[in-house]
Amino acid sequence: MSDVGGQGDDVDGPHDEASGRYGEAAGQARAAAIDTVVHHTLVAGIAVGLALLVAGLVLTVAGRGGLAVASLKVPAALRAAFHLRAPGFYSLGLFALILTPFVRVVGSIVAFVVARDWRFVAVTSVVLAVMLVSIAVGAA
């Protein structure tokens, strides 16, 4: 395979044998497995985020902190949530929702490693690295 390594991935080139490397059936089974990982990650992420936001609203109604507070950094949010203060739950819930695609990317890397699909392990790792940089930029 001349195109391993990424440079000049001529995807519209005429080399039909490229699909052989991924083997029709095996490739489809792998793709299905990756899709399942993605699916479960998304459902879990939204469920956790929503649950935290709703818990926050319940606490606000119960008089344990309102909405009109600046967002907390994660350590402060964890402390607030530990003391059953609503702002902690809001910040953690929003963070969980934002982090869902991030976890999805991590899950894809694992799935590509299991499939020994090294090219896409590399591609997905670059995406993860960019997301880590954005966390660092936000925290700086």
Partner: peptide, 30 residues
């Protein structure tokens, strides 16, 4: 999703994701 999350992580870290706006809109949009 991945693209917006990358941007959102920057805004979240900078305190620009305020619960008073983000909580009701996130629930409403769902």
């Amino acid at each position: 999703g991945v693209t917006a999350a990358t941007g959102a992580l920057i805004f979240f870290g900078r305190g620009l994701v305020e619960p008073r706006y983000a909580v009701p809109t996130a629930l409403g949009i769902l």
